[in-house]
Structures are given as structure tokens and as C-alpha cells.
Design a protein around this nucleic acid. Structure first.
Length: 597
RNA sequence: GGUCCGGUAGCUCAGUGAAUAGAGCAACUGCCUUCUAAGCAGUAGGUCAUUGGUUUGAAUCCAAUCCGGAUCACCA
């Protein structure tokens, strides 16, 4: 239990005993005291002074006196400023907290909830390589999965591979037309990049053919519809659905190349999955939903045979759930997929990490499930995140302004290398150790940069800013960790620390020592908040502040040359606990920490 | 046009009912003979888009307006 929730009942009881006032825990506001005031925790008095018809100063004084009198081992002192009661806790309380928790490996972890949570993230198309937007998705999904694990949930990480459809056929057609049998091996290219090039080639050819038709006097709509490559792609989709072996073989071959490429990237950035779903296996599953919905009169059929749901009563539009030719649309597939997943896992919650451009789609999906009376309708949650934009605006693949994921990782890596060499602190590292360090720092910088902002908000990716390794960045925090490790290499803290001599009255804590302990104490509630809000940036901001506090402490107070042996043990404990919590927090963000940098 | 999201320091972002609105970057001043200066300390920088309302108290809640974005496909 954290300190704030220990104080609360004391205050509630004091209100009851002093004024016979019933106050619930939610009505009571208790927060960390702002640094410019004296105190550890602050109670806001305004909410009940009105009922008491007393001045806030008077009320604060009475509660403060009560708390000091009744809990003399807990509270040291208090002060009242305006309507705020600032409470200072005994140093012995903080000492004890540190003693009990500094080496606790499960600090902040919740006991098992028995709940099963599915996190779907990444979900790429197999026609082009991953870009910066995918990275935000992947880092976010991975991190939220880890955060939910720390909260005691059983978490299943999944991905839906969008491996079929017209867009896949486009790169296949282009490969047939232009490749002359070239392969990733023959060209030395990474498979996903190789296939992505043919997707681009298709679009180039398509544009060319459309403008040729326009020049011949066709109207735009017809030209777009009748361009030979587009016709060929559409025919290929039909052939694919019919199971034409030649098409299936090509499809398998090209998707295989893409998977080889994705595997390299996933491995490099630390993405992992419990189970992959392939759209080619699931795209037909939704059709039975359509029949079910028609039977229940939730869906209706139009004259041309297409099937719809009318959501105008819910303030939305009519939505297509099956094409007139009987083929599935996106919604059909998603209905089928959620059902399949429920059969597979009987999840308590299923989280979809999908961009906010699909807010409407996800809203409709949930609404349809509700109308169909599915038990899991309210267990699906759309973790919607904002697009990543460049200072010049939105990334557009057609205009070549997409930041490629592999390039980005390479770039961060080389910046890490460059800066490390410049500082020249790791001359004793072997070549492989150096490579690993660059990877840790470069990826750490990138992940932190993408995770430090609230997922809901769109973010601007400024290439210059992202390669900064100072301040509110991953490397700053990694550096703090490495500094601590440097201390701990020189001296291990005594096993029992201060607990070994309980007779001694510990000397009082310096301001920065206490500030650090209080920061450490926040960790469990930060995990909880991050989980509740589905928001890893809570952890990122927290761990940055923790590192900052440690650095201030580090500059002000020497650990190894502390004034007394007792202070030395205390500071060693602080160092151990800080470095652990930095490592855990960064771990929840998918970021490694180096022992030296 | 309907719906949804956003507008906070030059830039990127915290803060969602409480004290004098905070960080980082950029700018400027200091600090490496003692545990890693990828650090620390400090200066400067704000009409929290605008207007009105609710409240003891509003960047935060409500309403309207302005600006930006997303979405409303027999695309995914």
C-alpha cells in the first residue's frame, strides 16, 4: 500500500472524530507536496471547510494537531498555508520503506488477477516494409502488454497479418511484369523492401497507363477502372480466391520474402507475438455473422444482394457488411476474427492497437457486436493512437516522405556510435560489446522518443530532435543507470543495510535523499495508472523524473565518500533501488539499460 | 455538412478542479585534481486559441466562436 492511501484513513477518521463528518476516500484529495513548500504530502481542505463553517486555517490546524497526537510515529510535523495542510512524515518511516523495498525484485508488481488480456498490435500489410508509424504502433502495443503483465494479467500478444487482398496482388502483378525472375537473394535486398519496390512499380505503371488512357480521351473514372494493370490485379484477386495454383504459389513465395524481412526487423526492435493470425485464414469467418445478423433482423439485404446494418438510430450511418458479390469487406473479417479469438482464448479484454483514423470503424465494430448480443462486445477496447507526422506534414508513401523503419533504426544506431566515440568513455569495450551498446542506446532513444508522448495525441517527428541524447530522452536515463552501476561495481551495499543496527537512531534525511525515496515510492502507482490509461508515457515521464532526481542527488551527495558509514549504506540502498526501478521502468517500455556507456 | 480529436513558452510536450501553470530542446551564465559533465546549478521566455458561464477556486467543467486534423467508401 502506498503512503497516500495510508494517510487517507487517518484523515477520514480525524474528520469523523473531530467534526462527526463522513468523508469518503474519493472525496479526499491528497497529493505530493509541491517542492516549493515544506512537507511530504498535502491535503486540500477546501472541499469540507464549507460544511464545517470554519476557516481553512483553523480546520487545518485542528486536523494537523489530531494527526500528530494520534499517530506520533508516523507524522513529524505539519503546516497550513491557505487551504492546504502539508504533512511531513517521520524520517524513520522513509528509512523503513527503503530498507524493506530496496532489494525487492517484485516491488511494483501486482499479484495475479486471473484475467486474460489480448493485445493486438503491429498488424502489417505484406506489400511494403514497415515505417515510422508502424514503429509507434509496435512499441506502444508491446509496452502496454508488458504493463498489463506487471499488473498481474495473463497477456497474449497477437498480430493480424494482412496478407491478402488487392494491394497484395498489385505487387505480385508488378513482379511478374518487371522482375525478370529477380529475388531478394539475387538482388541482395531485404525481402520486405524488395516486395515494396514492386508495389511502388505497380503504382508508377498504373499512373502511366491512366494518363495514356486520359490522353486518348477517356474520362478519369473509366481510365482508373480500365487500366490494364489494374484489371490484371483484380483478375489475380479472383484467381487467388479461386485457388489458382500458379497464383497461390507466387503469393506464398512473395509473402515468404516479406516475412523474412519482417522477422529481421521484429527481432531487431524486440517485437514478439504469442500468436499470429493471418487474414487469408480468417477472412471468410465473418460470413456466418452475416447470416446470423440477417436471421435476427439486425442486418438487412438490399435489392442488389449486398448486406447492411442501419446504425442511423445510433447517430451513425448505414454500414456495409457484405458486398453484393458475396465477398467480405474489412468489417466482415473483423467480426469473424474477434469471434475466432474469443474461441481461442476466452479473453476478458481484447485490446486493438490501431491508429485513430479507424476510430469510426472500431466504434461500429463494437456496436455491431453489441447488437448481435455477443458476450465479448464490451470486452474489446480500441487503443487509439495518433499519427506520426513530420515537420513538413503527414507522411505519404506516394510522395516518398515515409520514414522507413529499418533506415530509422540504422540512423539512430550510427548516431549512438558517433556520440559514443566522441565521448570516448568505453575504450575497453570489445567490438561486439560496442555493437550491442550502440543498439541499446540507439533503439532506446527511438523507443523513448515515440513512447514519451500520450498515445492519443498525434505527434510530430522531428529528425533532429529525435537524435538528441540529452534531457528528456532514453540515453539520459540509460546514462543515469550506468552511473549508478559504476558506483555499485566499486562497492556492494551491506546485505541488511540499516536494518542490521536498529538501535541506532538514523540521522535525518537530506532533502534530496527524501525526494528520491518519495520518487521511488511512486513506482507502483505509476504502473497502475499507465495500465488503467493504457498509456506508457506515464512510465516514460516518471522514469525521466526519477533519473533527474537521482542526478541532482548524485551531484549534491557523495555515495562512496559519504559523511558517515550509516549515510553510505543509506545512499547505497538508494542507488540500488533507483537503478532497479530505472531498469524495470525502461523494461516496460522495451528499452534495455547498459552497465557502462 | 454530421461526428470525433486537438489548440499550453520560439520548438516538442507534461499538467484535466486547487497554491506563484511545468519539463526538455534552442538562447544566455556558472560548475569536471574527489562515485561517468550523455551530468548539475542558474537566467530569460506564457493573455493556457477567443468570448461568456458554473464554482470558494478553471489551462482543466459547460456553451458559443475561430483555427488545425481525422472520419463519414461495395478501400483496408
Amino acid at each position: 500500500m502506498n503512503t497516500a492511501s495510508r494517510i487517507k484513513p487517518f484523515v477520514i477518521k480525524s474528520l469523523k472524530e473531530l467534526y462527526n463528518l463522513d468523508c469518503s476516500a474519493t472525496e479526499l484529495t491528497i497529493s505530493l507536496t509541491k517542492p516549493e513548500f515544506e512537507g511530504d504530502y498535502t491535503i486540500v481542505l477546501f472541499s469540507f471547510v464549507k460544511q464545517l463553517k470554519k476557516s481553512p486555517e483553523q480546520t487545518g490546524k485542528e486536523i494537523g494537531d489530531y494527526l500528530l497526537k494520534n499517530h506520533p510515529h508516523f507524522f513529524e510535523s505539519y503546516n497550513v498555508i491557505k487551504g492546504f495542510l502539508n504533512l511531513t512524515l517521520k524520517d524513520s518511516y522513509w528509512n523503513q520503506f527503503l530498507n524493506e523495498n530496496y532489494s525487492d525484485k517484485s516491488f511494483g508488481l501486482q499479484s495475479p488477477t486471473g484475467k486474460k488480456v489480448i493485445v493486438e498490435y503491429s498488424s502489417p500489410n505484406t506489400n511494403k516494409p514497415l515505417h515510422l508509424g508502424h514503429l509507434r504502433n509496435i512499441f506502444l502495443g508491446w509496452s502496454i502488454a508488458e504493463i498489463l503483465k506487471a499488473q498481474g494479467n495473463e497477456v497474449i500478444k497477437t498480430s493480424v497479418v494482412n496478407d491478402r487482398g488487392i494491394h497484395i496482388c498489385k505487387s505480385m502483378i508488378a513482379w511478374q511484369l518487371f522482375a525478370n525472375g529477380a529475388t531478394p537473394e539475387s538482388t541482395g535486398m531485404k525481402g520486405d523492401h524488395f516486395v515494396g519496390e514492386y508495389y511502388v512499380k505497380f503504382n508508377d505503371e498504373y499512373k502511366k497507363q491512366v494518363s495514356e488512357l486520359l490522353a486518348k480521351g477517356w474520362n478519369e473514372k473509366e481510365a482508373e477502372k480500365e487500366a490494364p494493370v489494374m484489371k490484371a490485379a483484380q483478375q489475380m484477386l479472383l484467381d487467388w480466391e479461386a485457388g489458382n495454383p500458379e497464383v497461390i504459389n507466387l503469393w506464398k513465395k512473395m509473402n515468404g520474402w516479406v516475412y523474412d524481412g519482417f522477422d529481421i526487423t521484429f527481432k531487431r526492435i524486440g517485437a514478439d507475438f504469442t500468436k499470429m493470425y493471418y487474414e487469408s485464414n480468417t477472412y471468410l469467418l465473418g460470413k456466418k455473422f452475416v447470416e446470423e445478423g440477417l436471421k435476427q433482423n439486425i442486418f438487412f439485404k438490399k435489392e442488389d444482394g449486398s448486406v447492411w446494418i442501419d446504425l442511423t438510430g445510433d447517430g451513425l450511418n448505414q454500414k456495409l457488411v457484405l458486398r453484393k458479390d458475396g465477398t467480405s469487406v474489412y468489417m466482415t473479417q473483423d467480426l469473424g476474427l474477434v469471434d475466432e479469438r474469443y474461441r481461442d482464448y476466452h479473453f476478458d479484454q481484447s485490446i486493438y492497437v490501431i491508429g485513430d483514423e479507424q476510430n469510426y470503424h472500431m466504434k461500429v465494430l463494437k456496436l455491431i457486436l453489441e447488437k448481435l448480443g455477443k458476450p465479448y462486445a464490451n470486452r474489446i477496447f480500441h487503443l487509439s493512437y495518433g499519427m506520426v507526422e513530420l515537420p513538413t506534414g503527414r507522411m505519404k508513401s506516394r510522395e516518398g516522405t515515409v520514414v522507413d523503419a529499418d533506415d530509422m533504426v540504422d540512423e539512430m544506431n550510427s548516431v549512438a556510435k558517433h556520440k559514443t566515440e566522441e565521448l570516448g568513455k568505453v575504450k575497453d569495450f570489445s567490438e561486439t560489446e560496442l555493437e550491442e551498446l550502440y543498439d541499446t542506446i540507439g533503439l532506446g532513444a527511438l523507443k523513448f522518443f515515440l513512447l514519451r508522448v500520450d498515445p492519443k495525441k498525434k505527434m510530430i517527428f522531428n529528425p533532429e530532435e529525435s537524435v538528441d541524447f540529452h534531457g528528456f530522452t532514453g540515453p539520459f536515463i540509460q546514462y543515469t543507470y550506468a552511473r549508478i552501476q559504476s558506483i555499485l561495481r566499486k562497492e556492494k551495499p551491506a546485505e541488511k543495510g540499516l536494518a542490521s543496527k536498529p538501535e541506532a537512531e538514523p540521522s535525518s534525511l537530506f532533502k534530496l535523499e527524501k525526494q528520491l525515496i518519495i520518487a521511488l515510492e511512486q513506482y507502483p502507482s505509476m504502473i497502475q495508472q499507465a495500465g488503467e490509461e493504457h498509456n506508457p508515457s506515464v512510465i516514460a515521464i516518471y522514469v525521466f523524473n526519477l533519473a533527474k532526481t537521482f542526478n541532482a542527488f548524485y551531484t549534491e551527495h557523495s555515495v562512496l565518500n559519504a559523511e558517515t558509514d550509516e549515510k553510505k549504506q543509506l545512499r547505497l540502498q538508494l542507488s540500488v533501488m533507483t537503478s532497479r526501478i530505472i531498469a524495470y521502468s525502461m523494461g516496460l517500455l522495451g528499452i534495455r539499460v547498459p552497465d557502462k556507456m
